[in-house]
Design a protein around this nucleic acid. Structure first.
Lengths: 352, 352
DNA sequence: TAGAGGATGGAAACCGGTTGCCCTATACGG
DNA sequence: CCGTATAGGGCAACCGGTTTCCATCCTCTA
């Protein structure tokens, strides 16, 4: 007994062939489609397939060069609302296009990110979508460029979402959203309400996304002829806890400000809670704004004024541009627009 | 020219072998590990590997019976915070154990769920983790049982998370959390604050999770000798919008109640916003409680009293029990405990 | 110095599919 | 009535790996 169908694994195409009294090729052709097979044979084969509950091994098909391609989605943490939104967009579009979707959480660990990408190369995924900002260092560019090349050599494609672009000529698709522009518009809105001293709760100083938003904050001030007080620029990360901590810090330092702009809605949520804990009214005492327009923003109290980023659309776009491409097409760079959504967390300053 | 390395796909093991001047078997052995290979040969092979940037095709390895197994995670919508938490747990544990993780969103479509599972069977995934409640109908049990059997026959394993268990003997792992117990404890807490009329914002009437929570609501009343007013039981789904809509409905109907218990935190968030919009103070005018303890619960205002469900732990457990099992071990059924976390959204009723 | 045995490495079979090629009926046209 | 196109199906090669089995070669021991 070399191979029997009684082993733990499913039945093979040869099992089906044996049961139907035909060759494996015929079974393949019945299942595969366009090769002529007599009705009688087809019936017998299909019956055998049904009786054995047979499904062709997708991995074997893949090796043979047919079958469902897969694509990979590498992010820091699926738990973040904006990441989840992107993941949803990616997943939706992937299944719409008949692809499967692998997801990998790096937990912010660069080494793990590298490992995942290598694994994906081994999996021969059609594309690797890398999302979430990082520090934009020369080291980052060089490393990522190498990855892009090696992926391209394997017939795959690297997609960067919300990440700094590489130099020209790298075989990579970059999809960004306008951090600076969004922050500029948001802060301009805040300033137009008469606020003069607005606290900025930023991210990591070397984080590209954080930098973009901070640049917008500064630019909006300067466009009004204001020079923001450096004391009002606080740095943390993009988490709720960071917002909470930074806000308490600002309060304990007795910094003077009438409005707060947080680098993300999560940060804003933490800050809002800290404000409430301090007995401050929003927006009565302090105005507050976020960034990302996560679904929860409208259920904060007061409903959060923020910048809408089309994350889900971003995800869909990522897979579309990655997959629907001629092999020769050059590097691509998309920049998605954002817009301010005004809710209730910002008030005009009363001329006291 | 039949096969050259210049085609779009990566290089094969034979390319490496040719470049190193050895046979494919030797390359495989150098890379594979424990077979003795001379140092000189090993060096040559490794150099060739490096020069060609070679990575073995994981799919081919899988066909040959070695290599990284994959596991699948099928849910309704990755966007829900509790689902995201579970996904995170699953993903973490999977990579810790060296597995890859496919995720599929069904958007609540039963047909798509079926299709995904069939696809996963074709992928020969080590396990399929199915998460999120559904209606517990005989039709559901039969269908799911068939799936479980067919997966088991393929050497895979079905894991049900937060889903109604099947009959005994089905080759399935069920991991549930205690919906009824949690709701009971929560509502008992609410009642102990003196509330007599508490509005329940429930889910779909035939949804197993919703039913469990509703049972807890009822049982807690009866344990106090109270019979809840049927008017106070509203049904919707588990979304934020449902909570918002239902709350407005309750308000417009001028139902009398001093507390609201929502079937999920998302529902509670929507309800809270509706309450605020109506100018009501929480918990001054109305107390509010949720269920799930999603991360955002503490940033609502007031911070939401709710029931903690160990979602991430649940995800980790799902993969651990699915993977670390003897092939013969019987069906398994775990029930995870929950506990009430008291925050600021519930007040004692003033004896007016 | 011959024989034994371990260290190396290649040929070939295998994993589970697909597909090019060839053989054999059968039907059809002339 | 015969030649031939075509439908139908099997063999074997292939995809890219792994692993069993066997052939060397070298070295150590008797």
């Amino acid at each position: 007994m070399t191979r029997k169908s009684q082993d733990a694994n499913g039945s093979t195409i040869r099992d089906v062939a044996a049961r139907a009294g035909v060759s494996a090729s015929t079974v393949s052709r019945v299942l595969g489609g366009d090769y002529p097979v007599s009705t009688a044979t087809r019936t017998r084969v299909l019956r055998a397939v049904r009786e054995l509950d047979y499904v062709a091994d997708a991995r074997a098909k893949a090796v043979a060069g047919v079958g469902t391609p897969t694509l990979a989605f590498v992010l820091e943490d699926i738990t973040g609302p904006s990441f989840a939104l992107m993941a949803h967009g990616v997943e939706r579009e992937a299944t719409r296009l008949g692809h499967l979707c692998l997801v990998c959480s790096t937990e912010g660990d660069v080494q793990r990110e590298l490992d995942f990408i290598e694994t994906m190369r081994a999996q021969r995924t059609a594309a690797v979508i890398l999302v979430g900002g990082t520090a934009d260092t020369p080291e980052y560019r060089e490393r990522t460029r190498r990855i892009a090349d090696s992926l391209a050599a394997a017939g795959s494609r690297l997609v960067l979402c919300g990440r700094p672009p590489l130099g020209p000529g790298a075989p990579v698709t970059v999809i960004e959203y306008d951090n600076e522009g969004g922050a500029y518009a948001l802060v301009a809105h805040v300033l137009s309400q008469g606020h003069q001293r607005v606290l900025f709760l930023g991210g990591k100083p070397d984080h590209a996304t954080a930098q973009g938003r901070e640049r917008g904050y500064l630019a909006a001030h300067r466009a009004r002829g204001l020079e923001p007080d450096p004391e009002l620029l606080l740095h943390g990360d993009f988490t709720r806890d960071s917002g909470h901590r930074l806000m308490r810090l600002a309060l304990s330092r007795k910094l003077e400000f009438t409005a707060v702009v947080a680098a993300t809605d999560m940060v804003a949520a933490g800050a809002l809670t800290a404000l409430h804990e301090a007995g401050l009214d929003v927006p009565g005492d302090v105005s507050l704004a976020g960034y990302d327009d996560i679904p929860f923003a409208r259920d904060l109290y007061p409903a959060l004024t923020t910048v809408h980023v089309p994350y889900e659309e971003l995800g869909r776009l990522a897979v579309r541009t990655a997959l629907g491409r001629t092999p020769e097409s050059p590097d691509e760079h998309l920049l998605l627009g954002t817009h301010v959504v005004v809710r209730d967390s910002i008030a005009a300053v009363t001329s006291s």
